[in-house]
Amino acid sequence: MLEFINRIFGRDTHSSRTVAKERLRLVLVHDRAGVSPELLQALKSDLIRVISNYMEIDEHALEVSLDSNENQVALVANIPVKKMKRTVQTGTA
């Protein structure tokens, strides 16, 4: 409801301008870090595989990005956890 009111009064937090700025920021950070989109997708897939051994996560809402602050690059992962698993699932059979 609050999002609707913000849109009516011109405070749309997801405006095309905001989205474009965020996309440009991500492209610049990835470029400065020398990370290709394919590498970031592979990292995301590996994170899903490993974390899924310990907890049930919402894979569709998972967000992985790189953030730059002067000379440092940070990996930022937002991983919604549905529930913890009682036993550990290992990849070996």
Rank of each mutant, 00 (worst) to 15 (best):
E3V: 15
F4Q: 15
I5L: 13
I5P: 04
N6W: 05
F9M: 09
F9N: 11
F9L: 11
G10I: 03
G10F: 01
G10Y: 02
D12A: 10
T13Y: 11
H14F: 13
S15Y: 02
S15A: 03
S15C: 01
T18F: 05
V19I: 15
V19C: 05
A20W: 04
A20H: 09
K21E: 09
E22R: 15
L24Y: 07
L24I: 10
L24V: 09
R25E: 06
R25Q: 08
L26F: 07
L28T: 12
L28H: 11
V29T: 13
H30N: 15
H30T: 15
H30W: 06
R32H: 10
A33P: 00
A33W: 00
G34C: 02
G34Q: 01
V35I: 14
V35A: 05
S36H: 03
S36D: 01
P37S: 09
P37D: 09
E38Q: 14
E38T: 14
E38F: 10
E38N: 13
L40G: 03
L40Y: 05
L40F: 04
L40M: 04
Q41C: 09
A42P: 06
L43I: 13
K44D: 01
K44F: 01
K44S: 10
D46I: 12
L47N: 06
I48W: 01
I48A: 02
R49C: 07
V50A: 08
V50R: 15
Y54H: 11
Y54Q: 09
M55V: 08
E56V: 14
I57E: 00
I57C: 00
E59T: 13
E59Y: 00
H60P: 05
H60Q: 14
L62Q: 02
V64A: 03
L66H: 02
L66G: 01
D67L: 13
D67A: 13
S68F: 01
N69H: 13
E70I: 08
N71V: 02
A74M: 12
L75F: 01
L75P: 02
V76H: 06
V76F: 01
A77S: 09
N78F: 07
N78Y: 08
I79V: 14
I79S: 03
I79N: 04
I79F: 03
K83H: 06
K83I: 00
K85D: 00
T87D: 08
Q89K: 14
Q89I: 11
T90S: 09
T90A: 08
G91I: 09
T92P: 03
T92E: 07
T92R: 11
A93D: 05
